[in-house]
């Protein structure tokens, strides 16, 4: 067993260097609410932890002409307390609010939620539906990628050795846009999504849906961006027929497994139900925005 080393650099460059040079398993420590649990339960035995919370620009939320940039070390509670962001992206906040308890959210970050690469991560369907991008710093410089490009399978990301997610970029929103995230869990809180559904849509002045993105969690090895479900809404006034089509498309896209948290059959059915409910809520928010 190697010895664990804890480092808390104060620049992105230093963090990248530490991670790139690590011999054994290295982990980024943002909120730590997954990493520390995985260490405690012997799922991982890293030799290096790189705490990124001391890097100032990773702690910032900045608004740039309607667009938002959220640093990778911003905790869920900090984001929930940011009024401007909450107004712009209520659906993303729906997901963020469901990441564990108040205590967990006091530490946990969206970047950690994404990089833990769980198909049931609560913020990820809403992030994908939002069309959010991540900025990645690595030994070969900085790159951008859509959120959905990060997780590749349960527990695995597309990040190369030494790369870290440094921030999320949310595009400026057109008027009459709304998003929502809903999940199903047997308990009201403190649970892992059995199914999650994020919907983001924009209406034209006449109330017709001009663009939509629908993402589903916990129904496949990674969060799914379901084009067919979005297409069911685009060009419609999001009436019952469109919602019905959306629900069917959502269910059809599912490739779930049976596990301790739910059955395949159950997940397929409920994915449609939740996609429909989330779309209704997103619609309501779009109309009010």
């Amino acid at each position: 067993m190697g010895e664990l080393r804890y480092e808390a650099p104060d620049t992105i460059e230093a963090a990248v260097k530490l991670l790139a040079r690590a011999n054994g398993a290295a982990r980024v420590l943002a909120g730590g609410t997954d990493v520390i649990v995985q260490m405690e339960t012997d799922l991982i035995e890293p030799e290096l932890l790189v705490d990124i919370k001391k890097i100032p620009q990773l702690r910032e939320i900045t608004a740039e002409r309607g667009a938002y940039r959220v640093g990778a070390a911003v905790s869920c509670m900090e984001l929930i307390e940011h009024e401007g962001f909450c107004r712009a992206w209520p659906g993303v906040i729906d997901g963020v609010k469901l990441i564990g308890s108040i205590q967990v959210k006091g530490r946990a970050t969206m970047a950690g939620n994404l990089c833990n690469a769980s198909p049931a991560a609560d913020s990820v369907p809403a992030l994908i539906a939002a069309g959010a991008q991540v900025t990645i710093a690595g030994p070969n410089g900085v790159r951008q990628a859509p959120v959905e490009a990060i997780p590749v399978s349960p527990g695995k990301t597309s990040l190369a050795k030494g790369e870290i997610v440094t921030s999320f970029l949310f595009p400026a929103r057109p008027p009459r846009s709304g998003d929502a995230y809903l999940r199903f869990t047997p308990r009201t809180e403190m649970d892992i999504a059995v199914v999650g559904a994020g919907v983001n849509l924009t209406l034209d002045a006449g109330g017709t849906c001009t663009s939509a993105r629908v993402a589903l969690g916990a129904v496949a090895p990674t969060v799914l961006l379901v084009k067919e479900a979005a297409e069911a809404l685009i060009g419609t006034r999001v009436g019952e027929a469109a919602l019905d089509k959306l629900a069917k498309a959502a269910s059809a896209a599912c490739r779930p497994i049976d596990d301790k948290r739910g059955t395949k059959e159950y997940r397929i059915k409920v994915a449609g139900v939740l996609a429909g409910r989330a779309a209704r809520q997103a619609l309501e928010r779009a109309r009010q925005s």
Partner: peptide, 10 residues
């Protein structure tokens, strides 16, 4: 926060 999810070094 939950003290179990904070490293002492932090």
């Amino acid at each position: 926060v939950d003290a179990c999810l904070v490293l002492a070094a932090e």
